[in-house]
Amino acid sequence: MTKSRIDARFAALKAEGRAAFVSYVMAGDPDADTALAILKGLPAAGADLIEVGFPFSDPMAEGPPIQRAAQRALAKGMTLHGTLDLIRAFRGGDQATPIILMGYMNPLVSWGFEAFAKAAADAGVDGMIVVDCPPEEADPLADALEANGMALIFLTTPTTDDKRLPTVIRRASGFVYYVSVAGVTGVKEADAQAVAPNVERIRKASGLPVAVGFGIKTPERASAIAQVADGVVVGSALVDEVAEAVDLNEDVTTRVLSKVESLAKAVRVSRRGLTAV
C-alpha cells in the first residue's frame, strides 16, 4: 500500500502551514442523489477531508441535528451498502480527497468486519470513526481495517485523562479526533482556549495530527480552532443547512456548499500556531 490519502493530505497541509477543514455529510440526506451532489462539490468548496456518516437507527452520541439527518436518510432507504455506493461514485471523479466513514457498530457487526472492510477499501474509503467502539472493544475491527489499508480513527474527549490516553491511541492511525466538549454532537460550543492544551497533549502522545470536532458551528469558531488544531470538523451545522434548505424548498446542494465555502475560507486564512508536529 502506498502512503495513505489521509497521511498525504495532512502532510501537504502541514507544508502549507494550515489546518485541514473536515466536512461531514450524512449519506442519503436528504436523499442519495443530493448527498452525492454535495459530496462531489465538497472538495471544490474547500473540504480537505470528508467524513461521511452512515445512518443508524439509534445514534446515542448525536444531538438532534444528526439524529434527524440519520432519520431522513433511513426514511429514504439509505444503508451501509448504499453508503459505499456513494463513495464509489465519488471516487470516480476524485482520487485525492480522504474519505472517512463515521457511524455506529451494529451495521458493521451485521455485515461482518472482514467482508465490510474489503468492500469499503474497494469503494475507496480511507478510514473509519465508530462512535460506540472504544479502544477496549476495537481489536477485531481494527484488525480487519488494517488488513485492508484503512485507518481506525479514535475519539478522545475531555474525560480522556493522561492515564487513559495511551489506551486510546494504542491503535490509532490517520489522525486522532478530539471531541471538544463532553456532550452530544452539535449542542455545546467548543472553546479554543480549553481545546489548545488538549490538542497539544494528544499530538505529543500520539505523533498524529489532531482534528477537533463537536460544537463548531460558525466561521469565527472554526477559525479560532484552526489556530490550535491540525483539523477542524464541522458536522451538525452542515446537516442543519440540509434541513433548512428542505424546509424552505431551497436547493440543498447550493446551500450546503456555500456554508462549506465560508467555513473553509475561515480555516484557510487562519494561520496555525507554531506548535508543529
Partner: peptide, 20 residues
C-alpha cells in the same frame, strides 16, 4: 474481567463515557 458472558456483553460506549 472484560464484562463478557462468552461472546456477549462488553462496553460499547462512546469514549466520553468510558472513564465513567
Amino acid at each position: 474481567a472484560k464484562g463478557r458472558f462468552g461472546d456477549f456483553g462488553g462496553q460499547y460506549v462512546p469514549e466520553t463515557l468510558m472513564p465513567l
